[in-house]
Amino acid sequence: MRIAVVGGGIGGLCLAHGLRGAGVDVAVYERDLSRTDRLQGYRVHINPDGAAALRECLPEENWQRFEQSAGTGGNGFGFLTEQLTPLLVLDPEAERHYSASRITLRQVLLDGLDVRFGKRFERYEQGDAITLHFEDGTTAECDVLVGADGIRSRVREQYLPHAGTEEVGVTAVAGKLFLDDHDWIPRGLVDRANTIVPTSRCGMFLASHDGLGHTDADGVLFDNTRPYLMWAYAANDLDVSEGLQQSVLRRIKQWSPDLQRIVRSTHPDTVSQWRIRSSKPIERWESTNVTLLGDAIHAMTPMRGIGANVALRDAQLLARKLTESGVDGISDYEAEMYDYGFAAVRDSLRAARQFAEGSPFSRTLFRTVLRTASAVPALKRAMF
């Protein structure tokens, strides 16, 4: 059984390791020209489910490198007013969470795999085998095709043309404030992740990330990350015509001076705009020897921070099913993935709308619920 994975992101590479470890013939085709093309992006939160998938699929040496390179995460979570008054603070979970550099995690996942770079997928043809066509004019054959090529998946576009994503009407502006230059930031914003819950129709999220130096398998330093505080402001009516930072500052001019200073002090090169998208709901399809994982099939908003972890769960499950049952395992994989994947899509979409919409009354009510839960430990346990 020859398996082709189109897309060398987190989910596709984790799947390839899981299959390779089971002795399955797997090839990864990646549009980037080299393994160092994608040296950018925010750090990614790996929860216990995502970590379990990596632990199962990766060779021991790769897993050890991941653990050594990842910072700690899950140090509690706070809900705060726009004046930084605590509404509810959740304690850290017992299970370990990781804060991983996307750059380093990808390098760890690439080690030990024969990835064919510079292969921009164009289309496939079904016959006795599946023939893949690439933009450079080359072809390849496989028995199973896995589309792991992200939110604009070309595999999905051909296989499930009615699927895809749509804008949800929420615009976000995000930036990085490097912590080694700013020691005035309140400790509560650095020690845990926080969501700002104002009474107006918007929201803000902040999370700090460790600074770590990362080396490749040969010990060469390639990613020397400075510690930073990531912030993201989102609203469904955000007008950024006057500039990203200025637009956010105008909207938060009555908020805590510290929050205003965080936005104002952020270097403009780190600030970007996101138009939030989410997968369209679709009916369950009939399984074939083509399948999809991660954002290629169930892209979700970033508001719950679980997209990468759901992709890793896909990789873990699909590796198991293909190893156990071959092509027949795809149906079992898709049945499970469809349920939990699109449930995550719905949950993250609901979170995005709660984050950026809602009437002043509903937001005031939510703040009251949070304060009540904070004061009643039994209620806090039941809710969270």
Score class of each variant (00 low, 15 high):
Met1Thr: 11
Arg2Leu: 08
Ile3Gln: 04
Ala4Phe: 08
Val5Ser: 05
Val6Met: 02
Ile10Cys: 07
Leu13Tyr: 06
Cys14Thr: 15
Gly18Arg: 04
Leu19Val: 03
Asp25Ala: 12
Val26Leu: 03
Asp32Gln: 06
Leu33Asp: 05
Asp37Ala: 11
Phe66Ile: 06
Glu67Ser: 12
Gln68Ala: 15
Thr85Tyr: 00
Tyr98Trp: 10
Asp111Trp: 05
Gly112Ile: 03
Tyr124Pro: 00
Glu125Asn: 10
Ala129Cys: 11
Ala129Asn: 07
Ile130Phe: 08
His133Ala: 12
Thr138Glu: 14
Asp143Asn: 09
Asp149Lys: 08
Arg156Leu: 07
Pro161Ile: 04
Gly164Cys: 07
Lys176Glu: 12
Leu177Ile: 04
Asp181Cys: 03
His182Phe: 13
His182Cys: 10
Trp184Pro: 14
Pro186Thr: 13
Ala193Tyr: 00
Ile196Gln: 08
Val197Trp: 00
Ser200Trp: 00
Cys202Leu: 03
Gly203Lys: 07
Phe205Cys: 03
Leu212Thr: 15
Leu212Phe: 08
Gly213Arg: 12
Asp218Ile: 00
Val220Ile: 12
Leu221Lys: 05
Thr225Ala: 13
Ala235Asn: 01
Asp239Ser: 13
Val240Lys: 03
Val240Gln: 03
Glu242Trp: 00
Leu244Glu: 04
Leu244Lys: 13
Val248Gln: 06
Arg251Ser: 12
Ile252Asn: 08
Gln254Gly: 12
Trp255Thr: 05
Thr270Pro: 01
Ile276Ser: 10
Arg277His: 08
Lys280Glu: 06
Val290His: 10
His298Val: 07
Ala299Asp: 03
Gly305His: 06
Asn309Asp: 13
Val310Asn: 09
Arg320Val: 05
Arg320Tyr: 09
Thr323Ser: 14
Gly329Ala: 03
Tyr338Gln: 11
Gly341Ile: 09
Val345Phe: 01
Ala352Gln: 06
Phe361Lys: 07
Phe366Asn: 08
Leu370Ile: 11
Arg371Gly: 02
Thr372Gly: 11
Ser374Ile: 01
Val376Lys: 01
Val376Met: 04
Leu379Tyr: 03
